[in-house]
Amino acid sequence: MSKFKKDGKKKLPAISTASLPDIIFMLLFFFMVATVMREVELKVRVTAPDASEVQKLEDKSLVSPIYIGKPTKALQAKWGDEDRIQLNDAFAEVNEIRPYVEEKIAKIAEYKRKKHMISMKVDENAKMGIVTDVKQELRKANALKINYSTRKGFDAKK
């Protein structure tokens, strides 16, 4: 009989799963390093407008976000569908911005305070009225460095 003839009855050996935990751990470490903890639960819907002249923000700990947009569907029954401001985890009025900024600045080490920045995460369908109000308030709070959060991909020629 031929030496190389296959024995039809023999089963394939099971693939060892011993290294599976290692693979999963690698994935785990990747995600732990590459991501940051989610800070707030969004209560407003924000689709950032698109732009092309964008800069990346370096240090997230120096950035305080201000969200402006319509409340999410589930919250619209209670809060209506006008544009609203969200600070931390709650809806806020314009006059709450100054204490919010001060609180955020107080958390930053003194030598880094100059680099503090406000990130305006505003929905593209929001009106400028509320944005202007917020900007005026930021000026009064002396938080002059701001960033308009945008998506990439705008091309004016299209």
Binding site: M37, V54, L57, S119, K135, L138, A143, I146, T150
Partner: peptide, 19 residues
């Protein structure tokens, strides 16, 4: 970790407001 973290890097147009 997949559920509790986000990956988005904040980017946008940086501006300075007048005092």
């Amino acid at each position: 970790f997949l559920v509790t973290t986000t990956m988005d890097v904040d980017s946008g147009i940086v501006r300075k407001l007048p005092p």
